[in-house]
Amino acid sequence: MNFDLTEDQREIKDVARQFLESRCKLDDVRKAADAGSYDEGLWKEICELGWPGIATPEADGGQGLGMVELATICEELGYACAPVPFMGSVIDSLVIAAGGSDEQRARWLPNLATGEVRGAAVMVDSSPWVAIDTEGATVVVTPDSKGVGRVGEASELEIVPLDLIDKTRSYGEVASTDGFGEELPPEHYQGVLKSQVALSAEMLGLAQRAMEMAVDYARDREQFGRPIGAYQAVSHRCAEMLYAVEETRSLVYYAAWCADAEPETLPLAAAMAKAQASEASWSVVSSSLQVHGGIGFTWEHDLQFLLKRARTDGRLLGTPKQERARVADLVGV
């Protein structure tokens, strides 16, 4: 028994961190957000690195690695708040891999893995139905916890653009999926559980970054003749951020490991990870804002990107309340 990334997994994470540190600074995030578009150059490089297909089976044109590896990438993309259509393509890949027919797999998975086509995903458990990563998407999945999901061409579905606070990815609203695309049998839902883990890993990265920003600021900023981090009202806030981030880290990587090694535990593990990551990432980003004072509230400050993405992620693929209800069911309350 060993709860630590393997050397290979750590290497993947470190390489991702280094790459994104040079290629996706918060200034770049701002440029993309201001332009209301993705960072297409960055996305191209990410596809060349093979990240979209990291957890797609080799037979389907991916790298055939596991959810733990995918989680490390998602965490780093969250840490960078990268404005790329990664999550939609990953959700599509996971859902089609879990429930798609041979023909559907052959049609979509290799192209999603290389980034040749982009995927959007519609969350039919939310109200209204929100689609993510709609911009430039060719394929859409509409997973559904109540049974049958759907997959089809984006051009066949009416998606109305949705202006959400998070400007680092594109969103849309879908009123109906009647008659859309082809059916996916209930097994596709395993892919949704995995997607919850991926999204939770992204929130972990967002929270980690917001915490580091708060800690750095608390060390530098002086008031009343000393760094504000010397005041317990501030330092205890930061300690509470670490508590939240580390609990999230444990639950996210556990869920990722369950997806690979113990799928029967995944429903509970994914619900716990999603509830925790949604709640914790919001509490950390909002607490980080408080540590920053007035500057943290400005449009000029980069914290806004983390805060808005965390708030949005927390409401996609299951709210904390919905996921906790699931946990209560699964433990038998």
């Binding site: 639950l251 556990y254 716990m272 509830a275 906790r324 209800a325 209560a328």
Partner: peptide
Amino acid sequence: RERMAKLKIGLEAMRLGAMR
């Protein structure tokens, strides 16, 4: 139900944190 779910999540986080 809500409190039991939160407790379960906390307990699991603690168990896994101890493993780490």
